[in-house]
C-alpha cells in the first residue's frame, strides 16, 4: 500500500471515480498509484479462485493491476494515466464481452 509524501499541488489535482467513490489524484500519474493511495482494495479478484489481488510490480510486467477503466475490462492500471472524470472499477469477475454490446 502507498501513501503520498506531499499533498497534491492545487493545479495538479484531478478527481475521478473508483467503485462509486470519488477520489483525487495527481494529474499524469497512473491509475494504479492513485487507487493504492486511496486505499481501494482489492483492485481485482483472481478469475480462477476469486482470491483478492492488488498491483504488484507497477511497471507493466505482472498484470495484477488489471481493472475496468472507462468500461473496458482488463486494463493495466499501472500503465494508464488517470484523467479527470475517468470511471474505474475493481474487476471482481472474469472479463466480459457483454459490455462491448453497448458501444
Amino acid at each position: 500500500m502507498l501513501v503520498r509524501r506531499t499533498k497534491i499541488e492545487p493545479d495538479q489535482l484531478i478527481t475521478f471515480q473508483v467503485n462509486d467513490q470519488f477520489i483525487t489524484a495527481r494529474s499524469g500519474e497512473s491509475v494504479a498509484f492513485a487507487v493504492l493511495a486511496a486505499g481501494v482494495m482489492p483492485t481485482r479478484n483472481n478469475p480462477v479462485s476469486g482470491s483478492p489481488r492488488a498491483p504488484y510490480c507497477l511497471m507493466g510486467i505482472c498484470f495484477e493491476c488489471l481493472m475496468t477503466i472507462d468500461g473496458v475490462d482488463n486494463r493495466q492500471s499501472c500503465m494508464t494515466p488517470v484523467a479527470e472524470g475517468m470511471v474505474v472499477h475493481s474487476q471482481y469477475n472474469k472479463a466480459s464481452l457483454e459490455r462491448l454490446d453497448d458501444d
Binding site: E29, F33, L36, S51, L58
Partner: peptide, 24 residues
C-alpha cells in the same frame, strides 16, 4: 505472495520516483 499489500521492491521505487509516494 499474491496478497494485496505484497509488492516488489522495484514497485516502491517506481512509486517514489514517479509520483512521490512511499509504502504504508
Amino acid at each position: 505472495w499474491t496478497l494485496p499489500g505484497v509488492m516488489s521492491a522495484g514497485a516502491a521505487q517506481i512509486a517514489l520516483k514517479t509520483t512521490n509516494m512511499v509504502p504504508k
